[in-house]
């Protein structure tokens, strides 16, 4: 991999996964360096969410996954979380019947009590808006606030790699910027990020490097500062047969 010179934090090789008889991913290769922000793009149905689920062990899969020097190929989500590989799932699925604070405490389930309390406060510090509402039920938060809470849950364990699945879905543009800003702050603090995003320009602005996934395999890998990226992405999306004229 010429574009990732650093020692990879996450290394995925020949990954295959699917639902029942339906194979969705075939031979996916992907790396994320320590502290790197990587965007995972692709048309819908390409298998981006499936890929994140397979990496975090929420879905059975075959192939090799190495994380922080350890083999995680057959690890479940619990092992992944405790190794520092945290997956914030799509659709801001927080626990609406619990308070904001309890939601965050649960994210630190199994940690020593003192450390948990400290790190919950740290996570809340990223999002002053929901810190104010820590005693409220998560059901009373707006969609954007719920998404922030979901990201904050992901931070409680001080992950080394945070995988965010479409944090912008269903949010207004202002909120999207806020969530992505939080991601950028994390990045500065040294957390690596793997971001699945529909809004390509926003994703490209946040990430150092980009993978495009189409038809269940990686069809493109590039640095975000490379020239002509939109055109190449488009070709990757629409397949080899399509020569979409992109003249504006």
């Amino acid at each position: 991999m010429p574009t990732s010179a650093r020692e990879p934090l996450l290394e995925v090789r020949d990954l295959a996964a699917g639902y029942g008889k339906i194979g969705v991913l075939h031979g996916v290769q992907l790396t994320v360096g320590a502290g790197e922000a990587v965007a995972l793009l692709g048309p819908n149905g390409a298998g981006k969410t499936t890929l994140l689920r397979a990496i975090s062990g929420l879905l059975p899969r075959t192939g090799q996954i190495r994380f922080a020097g350890k083999d995680m190929s057959s690890a479940g989500p619990r092992d992944a979380v405790s190794a520092g590989l945290v997956h914030v799932v799509e659709g801001h699925r927080v626990f609406t019947q619990l308070t904001v604070f309890d939601n965050l405490l649960l994210a630190g389930y199994g940690m020593p009590r003192a450390a948990r309390a400290r790190q919950v406060e740290e996570a809340l510090a990223f999002f002053p808006e929901i810190a104010e509402k820590r005693r409220n039920l998560a059901a009373t938060l707006s969609g954007g606030q719920q998404q922030m809470l979901a990201v904050a849950q992901g931070l409680v364990r001080r992950p080394r790699l945070l995988m965010l699945d479409e944090p912008s879905a269903g949010l207004s543009p202002v909120l999207v910027d806020r969530v992505l800003l939080a991601a950028a702050k994390l990045r500065e603090a040294g957390t690596a990020i793997l971001l699945v995003e529909q809004l390509i320009e926003k994703a490209l602005a946040t990430a150092d490097r980009v993978y495009a996934l189409a038809r269940g395999t990686i069809v493109l890998e590039a640095r975000t500062d490379e020239a002509d990226l939109p055109n190449r992405l488009e070709q990757a999306y629409f397949g080899q047969g399509a020569h979409a004229p992109l003249q504006s």
């Binding site: 048309p43 939109p230 992109l246």
Partner: peptide
Amino acid sequence: VVSAYLGA
């Protein structure tokens, strides 16, 4: 259309 697909 191309923008919608590329999310720009």
